[in-house]
Simulated assay, not measured.
Amino acid sequence: MEVVKRYIHAVTQKLPEQQRADIEKELYGLIEDMVEERVQGGEITQNDVEEVLLELGNPSDLADKYRGSKRYLIGPELFPTYLFVLKIALAAIAIATTVAFVIETLLDPAQIQSELTSYISSIISGFFQGFAWVTIIFFLVDYKGINKSKLGMDSWKLSDLPPLPNQQARIKMSEPIVSITFTIILLVLLTFSIDLFGVSFTRDISIRTIIPIFDGEVFHRFLPFIWIVFAISILSDIMKIIAGRWSIKLITFDIVAIVLHFVLAVFMFADSSIWNPHFMQLIAETDLILNDSDALQTIQTVWSYATQGILSIIGVILGIQLITTIIKYFKIRDFS
């Protein structure tokens, strides 16, 4: 019966992967024996099976019994995923910090010693912060799940069993992995290396300069909001890895994250002072382009369109993401 498969799936998915196959066989045998004992040779009905499952109780509680102990900072159910996400986070921090170090060294090779010291310090600090944030997020996720079960706010029912996994609702692991990696790399660069976002040019063979497109002082005022929205985005991706399949709640959370990104973009780029006010002046002073040349006029036009149209570009990108996510909702709603 499907209800038995769903019950066993709900139990085994909360256990370490290496234990699942053996416990699945054990549970099938246990349920079969309990049903036969209940009917005493009579005909087995759906109601008999459901009574046995209710007797076994909440799958979370049964999984806790198989684990033997429940005192964990992060329980066995989430620990493999926690290590997986932690590796992604640390790798992304290392990549972003290394990219910033390489670029800054190329811009000023004479400062390589001080840049190297700063690089090592940033790597260590980034690793500690990454470890702390990932651990805190998983602790809260695990704690919330345990709390819901322990408080007994609602009595457990068979209707609470999650549906069996289906290919249409399955989440490809590459999607949240790439998203987390990109988000962390961008977050590190926006936080520590905002001046790297700009136009690079070489005055001579040994000196390379970047004209930043943002006003660093103004941009840093928005960093707390960037951290919050990006953290929500990372949390959404972590939940995708944990769940392994789309659900209505997960899609709703994803939509909220997308909308928050757009709200943040409006909030930031509605303030025109975020752009470097001296950008065109610095371009003209490079002596690479004549002040009255068509090239300078072209750059001026592009700069004007870019600063005024950035919200439209971001809106189109996020709009595509939103439409794609809504389509997922209609595809999997019958399975949630």
Rank of each mutant, 00 (worst) to 15 (best):
E2F: 04
K5P: 03
K5E: 14
V11P: 08
Q13Y: 04
E17R: 10
Q18Y: 12
R20C: 00
E24D: 13
L27P: 07
Y28H: 03
I31H: 05
D33R: 10
R38M: 07
Q40A: 10
G41I: 01
E43H: 15
T45H: 02
D48Y: 00
V52I: 13
L54P: 00
L56Q: 02
G57W: 00
L62N: 09
A63C: 10
G68E: 05
K70T: 14
K70G: 08
Y72P: 00
I74M: 01
G75S: 11
E77I: 00
E77F: 04
F84S: 03
L86H: 03
L90A: 06
L90W: 05
I93Y: 05
A94L: 12
A96Q: 15
V99N: 11
S114R: 12
T117P: 10
T117H: 15
Y119P: 01
Y119I: 12
I120N: 10
S122L: 06
I123E: 02
I124Q: 04
F128D: 00
A132C: 04
V134S: 04
V134F: 13
V134W: 13
I136K: 04
F138P: 07
F139P: 02
Y143I: 00
K144E: 03
I146Q: 14
N147K: 09
N147H: 10
K148D: 08
D154Q: 12
D154H: 12
D154I: 15
W156V: 04
P163R: 13
L164I: 02
N166F: 00
I171L: 13
K172F: 01
P176Y: 09
I177S: 09
T183S: 11
T183I: 15
I184R: 09
V188N: 06
L189T: 03
L190R: 04
L190D: 02
F192H: 14
F192V: 00
S193I: 03
L196N: 14
S200L: 07
F201S: 06
T202K: 08
D204H: 14
I205R: 07
R208N: 13
R208A: 15
T209K: 15
I211T: 08
D215T: 02
H220S: 07
R221N: 10
L223Q: 03
I226E: 01
I228F: 10
S236Q: 15
A243Q: 15
R245I: 02
S247I: 06
I248S: 13
L250S: 14
F253T: 13
D254M: 06
L260W: 09
H261W: 15
V263Y: 13
F267S: 04
S273T: 14
H278R: 13
F279D: 08
Q281H: 14
L282S: 11
A284Y: 01
A284T: 11
A284Q: 11
E285S: 05
I289Q: 08
N291H: 09
D292N: 15
S293Q: 07
Q297D: 14
Q297H: 10
Q300C: 05
Q300L: 01
V302Q: 06
V302G: 07
L311F: 11
I313H: 01
I313Y: 12
I314W: 02
V316G: 00
L318P: 01
G319K: 04
I320T: 02
Q321H: 05
Q321E: 03
I323Y: 15
T325Q: 09
I326C: 09
I327E: 10
K331W: 08
I332C: 00
D334S: 14
D334H: 11
